[in-house]
Amino acid sequence: MTDTQSLIDQLAQESALPARNPLSLFALPIIAVIALCAVGVVLAFSDPFLSVELYGWGPMLVKWGFSMSLLLLCAAALWILGKPGRRSRWAMAAVALPFVPVAALLAFELAIIGPNVAGETWAQCLTAMAVMSPLAFGGAVFAMRALAPTNLKRSGAVAGLFGGAVAMTAYAPFCPEIGMGYMVVFYCLPMLAMTLIGWLTGPKLLRW
């Protein structure tokens, strides 16, 4: 009997039915890091929704609309990327969609009032993004390792973007700034940096 034949016999002794539910394996770390970041910002920062009191819900909805749609699209893309043989191009295109209205609003703001990236709380925003993005990225990596990603760079990049989206979603209620230029510089650029880190480290972290 060849080694391969004996391997088949050995594997066939176990059930073909997966012992694990892939959705729960994937979702648990994702939900855990979102919850961790939510609890973290509540403990670390004060005066949530100050921008709502000052300017109404508009700026807050722009921020959350962007970050939450990105978070959900990234989670869906990660799920697809973790299933071998599934086409992921449309999912990759979908994660870019939330950036389109942001670019349009930025262009509008530039046309009306010119460049506006100033904000007193920029250091706090950057710190929050720098602390929570890698944490959420780690959760996404953990979730992906339960699946079987075959495109590790792409999966790593989406995991990085997911990390940034979670960080922004968690921190946004505590950010009083409202400019689109500010949002692009202090939220979108750190997100893209995390995406690049994910793209570079994906092949090492997600290998199975």
Binding site: L7, L25, L147, A148
Partner: peptide
């Protein structure tokens, strides 16, 4: 390589959706 593939197919069988064809999944792995 073949044996590595077989082990991977077995260990990652939870990533095969029941309503999807096996071929693309198997060849991707």
């Amino acid at each position: 390589v073949l044996q590595e593939c077989l082990i991977a197919l077995h260990e990652k069988r939870h990533t095969l959706d029941p309503d999807r064809p096996v071929g693309p999944w198997m060849y991707a792995i």
